[in-house]
Design a protein around this nucleic acid. Sequence first.
RNA 1: GGGCCCGUGGGGUAGCUAGGACAUCCUAUUGGCCUUCGAAGCCGAAGACCCGGGUUCGAAUCCCGGCGGGCCCGCCA
Length: 572
Amino acid sequence: MTNDAFQKFKDEVSDALRYALDGLKVDTPIVLDKAPEGMGDIAFPCFPLAKKLRKSPDAIAKDLAATIVPKGMIEKVSASGGYVNFHVMFDVLAKVAIDEALEKKDKFGSGGKKEAKVLLEHTSVNPTGPIHVGRARNPMIGDTLARILRLAGYDVTTEFYVNDMGRQAVMMAWGVKNLSVEGKPERERDDYRFVLNYQEANKRSEEDPSVKELIDEMLLKLEHGDPLVVKDVREACRKVLSALVETLKTINVKIDDFTFESKFVENKSVERIIAKLKQSEHTRESDGAYYLELESFGISGRETKWVFTRADGTSVYTTRDLAYHMDKFARSDVTINILGEDHKLAMQQLMAALSIMGVARKPEIIYYAFVSLPEGKMSTRKGIVVNLDDLIDEALDRAYEEVKKRRADLSEERMREIARVVGIGALRYNVVRIQPEKQIVFKWEDALNFEGSSAPFVQYAHARACSILSKAGEWSHEFDPKVLQNDYEKELAKTIAAFPSVIEECAGHRKIHVLAGYAQDLATQFNQFYRFVPVLKADGKARDARLALVEASKWALGNALYCLGIEAPSEM
RNA sequence: GGGCCCGUGGGGUAGCUAGGACAUCCUAUUGGCCUUCGAAGCCGAAGACCCGGGUUCGAAUCCCGGCGGGCCCGCCA
């Protein structure tokens, strides 16, 4: 089963505590803390027990510490300030973890195979123009989570839901067909070309009621499956979509499947859902439209009703999304959505509708706050945006300047390649390192940070490890962990040993920023080790053991970066 | 009018679900380290839990009330 050495240690500590607590005849959940530096590796706080046992926490800790006999991976048990502190048997931990890393290589960190099939929907931006940085958090979060879940052992499919049904898609298709736009697109690509038609169509429709009528008419035809209209809209969407895929590819995001919203109108599943909802006791009718009264479902505000079918019998966005969710449920065990916080209410309505229909499944949702500009919110329709492509270009340019400063010895081609890996890495890291729900204001200098808490910092540690290994020549993998004796070696080995647990935690809680923090810690540990502990100049057994530690570091760093969607160069 | 999210050193950020030992890390400021494996690095200094109550032996963490910022309340998507 698991070769996760750190987890094994934690399990042994829990077992020992459980046994000791049974002896004291108390039942309490075992919550383990990380011990402060120099106090051991894992701590058990005894404060909650004080009342039950009517003794001071410190006395309880001392009693427990005296009762527990160190064995297995527990080297020492001590009591201090109301905590029982457990020290890990370092030799065993280091040996198991490093062997595991050297053996599993780019699979190091992987957990046991999970049975659950995960369907992860992310990005799903309207295909009416280029991706702007306000929404760029979505693919980065989604892709990173997918990579983490895969390493953890889940079977994951990522999916982009294409909005080819709504007003905005029609608006664009109408603009593409009927307007010739003056002015050059920013880039020679369909997303940049068509967004001009889209913006112009919006403008005309606002100014001229007859244009609005034409678009309304087209929308109605689309909803009723008029083949010509369907073809025009879908074609325009597909073209923009394939341009978006190009952009996503440059930031190492690949999406497995694309599902078109129109599919659920075509295959009548939306119709069936509408029929079913109409039968609910929560349903009301108003001028031919039907809505659910959702006040009793905790929805509040000016309006607590949710219209699910219009007076003309057509569906609305969330109703079609409901059909899509039913489809996703049928294809997966766990469905996860990455969504902007503006979708919260719609999702609440969707969840309520699921309950009303008697569906037990619910999607898991990760909401992210918008990236805004110092001057305000971004908008494709209004053309107030920083496009992701521009951010990428800027990242590449700035990274190139940095590479040129340091590595003038390399060929032009090689410098460009390193600049790409470093620049894209910096972009992704800076988005993914912070909790999705925190709003961020876009600033160039923050988005393109190459020092400190950044991708290049972690990549640099990886490159250093590779550099040592390439100079090492022959060495024996049969190392003796006992020779790893100083604190730099020990702390580094312990951090490496924690990697599988970190992956498990990130996957289980769907928390990707924790991995970014771990990568930063690991790189710091490695850099300290690198500074203070000579590897190539060490002798015999120490050299072998340190080389093993360096190689294990390389895999842990590289795999952490891979999960973050960041490439790990061997030189930079 | 109502709902949800966020508020931690000058700036950014972790910790908050399961309250506990001197609150994490980065940046900017400041003082050091390239004659030993790559200075995109390392070592040191200074600096923070929005405000007010409450619960508790103990609150950044839980509860109530404010204040500030964001998102939302469409027969749009």
